[in-house]
Write a protein that binds this DNA or RNA. Structure first.
Lengths: 377, 377
DNA sequence: CTGAAAGCGCTTACAG
DNA sequence: CTGAAAGCGCTTACAG
């Protein structure tokens, strides 16, 4: 949606305005050029035309080596700074990609953002950041604002409850969008992890250790990633012929704190499970804390498996068995995909699935009543 | 430094290029406009001049209410998207701020970034993200790239070993810079936390609990924030007349893993300290883990205090006593400062100090031999 | 209150 | 190999 009555920041016109007064704080005014230098200044400074400087800047082979050297020296001498916005406007190009996440303070998204930025920086692109805090309204505002900066594409992790049509309206028909991490109604280019397989692997791992009563812990029913992970869990149980009691599926907000609070509900089920596949690592770490508070211990008398492999997973006590998705590499992959679609807008939208891998650590022990290979520190 | 021979992304000119072929994937071509709409299209669509549409867009009171309504309806109808880059070029203004951090996957910086973005988004500005991974070379490249996008300002957490003159050269004289978190040689606008006071409070807290042998654990000598915190620690010891043994100052990389690895060195000192002020929370959490691995426990037989109050601090076992600096609020403050300097470039540079607050939790127990108020769960 | 015109800093055919 | 000219999508005095 176009934001109407948009007011330019009250004093916007003062930014970068050429100053013709003398800065009272600076006595040495000579070495602080009063105005931002342009191609014209450089051209005049070394006696060539603006076009030639432009060609030099962009590495064209049309320019004589001597001329090029002269221009480059002048550019360095005066400290000229290229105005990419102007260049993009003229060339109808873009050198930015927008990244919209729901929660940057989630280390998983932070890693993902670092991966995106890494891949973009490598080709001189810039990341435009947007953060929605899981609010659909803020998401609309953020998208509307970002799209006005004409990014080459948008990488979007939709806020919960997002409406595909609204997103499409905010973005318009010209900017390729890559949806990651969550489903969004409508036809979109997707980058999603293989939630089903990941949860299936986690569950099979626990079954292989001897567990027969396995819970699915945490996450919200209306989150598509949670549904998919639960499906993978149910599938593994079905194949093994194990019971999938609905009372063993505990919903929580996907945070450590909420997960720690709900452990009572998990342990109150009858019979009590001996293991849990968790919606994600945050929930799994919360579960570990909640167990300690109730005199039990993950990796000793209760098996816990997470999902995501956030950095804390390896460092927790005990280290958390989890399903790795390499968020940083995924961020790079997302950036590559957007750049590919920018280069060739006729590429058909698709669903890319991230392979997923089980990382076995100490938190997934055999059940207490199982014989044999119990791990000790 | 200006990057020479900069090549525009190979197919850059294809982005946003007006297409006059029919998308083979779309049968419904009518509802997908072939070209990005401009003010001209809107003006023609409702029979006014481009100037009038521009005035409407920017909420000018000069436009007749009826005309305004007609224009707004047309804007909505055709899904016009404002081109802020063009507007900024013409008006010599900017609607972005660059944020350069060394490590986005550090939750402290992620929170800070979220705060910056929050404050900027509130006034329709956009955050340009840059990540240096503590590399001075990447920092130069990132700054050179960002400054070409003409941000209204740059918020920079310098990579370790940064050279102020190089930074100044990369940024040029026109963009206000706010340095946060670390010192940088030269005269800069600063936003730094009160490291000395924070570490002093932490140390006084331990002294108040009865500790007499207090270590300073973790961090690197060449980091200015580490030096300041160590100074605060030394100052508190001096005031209390306690010994400040150099062997009780253990250097580590400021990470959880490194801190956990060095615990042996701490416990090997003679006499062994009963408490430690840590460089930051990551180090403190690592120390807690390392203690457990050696049969000791923070909050029971060893007191630990961190610095930063990262989200994990409250959730660790035991919860970590630490010094809070509210990174999200600091991010907002950094954004406000940059915007203020943008509005009035004649504001003198200054050093803003963030107040700091001790958060007492379970990890800071009295010394084992002290009588009395030992905490129990 | 609205329109015609100039120009922000670039790029890009097109001549020469 | 280099220069003059048009134009990207806007804003902003300036007339009317």
């Amino acid at each position: 949606m176009v934001v109407l009555r948009r007011t330019v920041p009250a004093t916007g016109s003062q930014v970068h305005t050429r100053k013709n007064w003398i800065d009272p704080n600076t006595s040495m005014t000579a070495d602080k050029p009063r105005a931002r230098l342009t191609l014209n200044d450089v051209a005049r400074g070394c006696g060539v035309s603006r076009a030639t400087v432009s060609l030099v800047l962009r590495g064209s082979p049309l320019v004589h080596a001597e001329t090029r050297a002269r221009v480059e020296a002048e550019i360095r001498r005066v400290g000229y700074i290229y105005n990419r916005a102007a260049a993009n406007l003229r060339a109808q190009s873009s050198s930015s990609v927008a990244l919209v996440v729901n929660d940057l303070s989630n280390p998983y998204f932070a890693e993902f953002a670092a991966g995106v930025d890494e891949a973009l920086a490598a080709i001189g692109f810039v990341t435009l950041l947007g953060s929605t805090g899981e609010s659909v309204q803020r998401q609309q505002a953020v998208l509307a604002s970002l799209v006005e900066h004409a990014p080459a594409g948008i990488i979007l992790s939709p806020a919960e409850g997002s409406d595909g049509a609204s997103v499409a309206r905010a973005v318009g028909p010209h900017v390729p969008v890559l949806v990651f991490n969550r489903e969004l109604d409508g036809a979109w280019d997707y980058l999603v992890m293989d939630n089903r397989t990941g949860a299936r692997l986690a569950t099979e791992h626990l079954i292989g250790l001897g567990h027969r009563r396995i819970a699915f812990y945490g996450g919200h029913r209306d989150s598509s990633s949670c549904r998919e992970r639960r499906d993978g869990y149910l599938q593994a149980l079905a194949v093994a012929g194990l019971e999938a009691a609905p009372r063993w599926r505990i919903e929580t907000a996907p945070t450590r704190l909420e997960a720690a609070r709900q452990v009572g509900a998990l342990l109150a089920t009858e019979p009590v499970p001996t293991a849990a596949v968790c919606y994600n690592d945050a929930v799994a770490l919360g579960l570990q804390l909640g167990l300690v508070a109730r005199g039990r211990q993950a990796g000793v008398d209760f098996a816990v498996v997470g999902f995501d492999d956030i950095p804390e997973a390896a460092m927790s006590v005990p280290p958390l068995t989890t399903v790795a998705t390499a968020p940083r590499a995924r961020g790079r992959q997302a950036a590559e995909r957007i750049l590919a679609r920018m280069r060739d807008p006729s590429i058909a939208i698709a669903r890319q699935t991230i392979p997923v891998q089980l990382i076995a650590r100490e938190s997934s022990c055999p059940p207490p009543d199982a014989s044999g290979n119990r791990r000790h520190e």
